[in-house]
């Protein structure tokens, strides 16, 4: 038996977050999601260096090449080309940036604003809280796609505006999730106890409430990423999102639909990219949810 330096048996209790993490990594599906997610994240950062061609570069001599493993395919266009001779692989890799990368950024901003508003409203009571609730109810009732369409119509069709629109459409969901979680916590006994101890609002929030609502927020965050990806791609697909000729997955898919008879790979691959990224995020979300639940239980 190995000798331990310490005579006492060390029994470290993992922090709640660490506990969740330990739970999380025990689900293979969640880990698969995480790895795919990290893969996409890496591609987002290095896309220009690994993509064989710059975005949107047309090869007039290589129209509608099928993927390389096909008889007529060429290895230099690994996943084939579209009707303007643009390399699909390159476009998909750059699309990781436009679709996946922007979704991340959008979600981070939306989360920041939404959570802040949610905390403010959650911590307050009475009229203020109730007014905010009605605004929320009204915004949440508007289908997010319609909201984004209106916002893009107001601000003009550029990628930045699409991101802003999708972000704004996400905010209410964050506010709602935070509000509910915080509000729920406020009535707990330990919060009351902290209050009786004379803690001020900020202390109560930071020390007592935040650790308990963090889980819910993380889950909401992953959910929001998948919604953002789908929303950006949907807007692109309907051609009211990213401007034409942007390497955006939804836009690529919309272009591909016109070629569905002769070049189905133009539909298959962008769709798979969207699907894979959303699935990865959802796997992570599922893993987190389960980890949180088991962590508590």
């Amino acid at each position: 038996m190995a000798r331990s330096d310490s005579i006492y048996q060390e029994d470290t209790i993992p922090t709640p977050l660490r506990h969740i993490w330990l739970n999380f990594i025990s689900y293979p599906v969640a880990m698969l999601g995480l790895w795919v997610f990290i893969g996409f994240l890496v591609i987002t950062l290095i896309a220009p260096y690994i993509a064989p061609y710059p975005p949107g570069l047309q090869h007039p001599d290589a129209l509608l090449f099928p993927p390389s493993w096909h008889d007529d395919g060429q290895v230099s266009y690994f996943l084939g080309t579209d009707d303007l001779g643009r390399d699909i692989l390159s476009n998909l890799l750059h699309g990781v940036r436009t679709t996946f990368g922007s979704s991340l950024i959008v979600t981070i901003f939306a989360a920041f604003i939404g959570i802040l508003l949610g905390i403010l409203s959650g911590m307050s009571r009475g009229l203020k809280s109730s007014i905010l609730n009605h605004i929320l109810d009204a915004t949440l009732a508007i289908p997010s796609l319609l909201l984004a369409i209106v916002l893009v119509a107001i601000s003009g069709q550029t990628m930045i505006n699409v991101m802003i629109a999708v972000g704004i459409a996400l905010v209410p969901q964050f506010v709602r999730a935070t509000h509910t979680a915080v509000h729920h916590e406020l009535s707990r006994e330990y919060v009351v106890a902290a209050k009786l101890d004379g803690a001020n609002k900020f202390q109560i929030f930071y020390n007592v409430i935040l650790p308990n609502v963090l889980n819910a927020l993380i889950v909401q965050f992953t959910l929001a990423i998948s919604i953002a990806i789908i929303d950006i791609a949907t807007l692109g697909f309907l051609r009211i999102g990213a401007p034409a000729s942007t390497s955006e997955w939804g836009t690529m898919l919309a272009d591909g639909v016109d070629l569905i008879f002769i070049a189905p790979w133009n539909v298959t691959f962008p769709g798979m990219a969207i699907f894979a990224s959303v699935l990865a995020v959802n796997f992570i979300g599922y893993g987190l949810q389960r980890a949180v639940k088991e962590g508590l239980g």
Partner: peptide, 21 residues
């Protein structure tokens, strides 16, 4: 026409003209 525009966009880029569709 959109596809034509995209092609022209790509072709004019080669001579330094930036096309906004």
């Amino acid at each position: 026409a959109i596809k034509t525009a995209e092609l022209i966009q790509g072709q004019l880029k080669l001579v330094g003209v930036n096309v906004n569709i």
